[in-house]
Nucleic acid binder design. Structure first.
Length: 218
DNA sequence: GGAGAAATAT
DNA sequence: TATATTTCTC
């Protein structure tokens, strides 16, 4: 493809393993919402099982908050305990339908509302290689005119992803593109030229500045 | 009210 | 260091 999206390389990268792992996860439709009791009340009483307490959406939101806090701690390999958030509804980008921005039930603003009611802050987003890949492809698809935070957010269609998340990432991504533009001669891919409306002064050889997570878009 | 850049905070 | 937030201008 090009320099940016080809960071997965040819071999079996972490990216591939994550894909495989995600492939094995149950679909959202396969799961019982936490707001619904696992055992029907009739069944519970028939077997003398104490019925589960009714959970409000607020309860579910609180539980999710705790769960995500726990999970992200493991994800970060015990090195730190920030409240990171890893979106869990990423499917393969191959089945992504570009034609339908689709503003259905998963409206980030709703969870934001819940956060406000709960008086809690949303966990910080982790831009996994998959998430970044979708971001890059959506940006490329939209083109320079339409690649604004709101539209990108809509097209990515990732649950819980906010406009602010995208805006912050986009700001950094543009800086990266700018640097790439001035760095190499073959940095002339579609993506790289996407935002380079003005000539970029060549920043003297800073090397590649190091990589992280298998890719580098700083 | 959103976009975007820069500075600043966590 | 990565991401979030703030501030400012457009």
């Amino acid at each position: 493809m090009n320099m940016i999206t080809d960071y997965t390389g040819g071999g079996y990268s972490d990216d591939d393993r994550i894909s495989d792992w995600e492939h094995g996860l149950p679909n959202v439709s396969d799961l019982t919402p936490l707001s619904q009791p696992l055992i029907p009340p009739e069944l519970a009483s028939a077997f003398s099982i104490t019925p589960e307490p009714y959970r409000t959406n607020l309860d579910v939101a609180r539980a999710s908050q705790r769960t995500m806090s726990t999970l992200k701690g493991q994800y970060n390999n015990n090195t730190n305990n920030n409240n990171n958030y890893i979106p869990n509804n990423l499917h393969s980008f191959d089945d992504f339908d570009f034609s339908d921005p689709n503003t259905d039930g998963s409206d980030p603003r709703k969870s934001r509302k819940i956060d406000a009611e709960m008086g809690t802050k949303r966990a910080r987003l982790v831009w996994t290689p998959q998430l970044h890949k979708r971001f890059v492809e959506v940006v490329a698809h939209l083109g320079i005119k339409n690649a604004v935070p709101k539209r990108i957010m809509e097209m990515m269609n990732v649950e819980g992803l906010s406009r602010e998340n995208v805006a912050s990432h986009l700001q950094k991504y543009r800086l990266y593109l700018k640097r790439m533009q001035g760095l190499s001669t073959d940095g002339s891919s579609v993506y790289d030229q996407l935002f380079a409306s003005t000539p970029v002064p060549r920043e003297a050889s800073k090397g590649n500045g190091g990589m992280y997570h298998g890719y580098d878009y700083r």
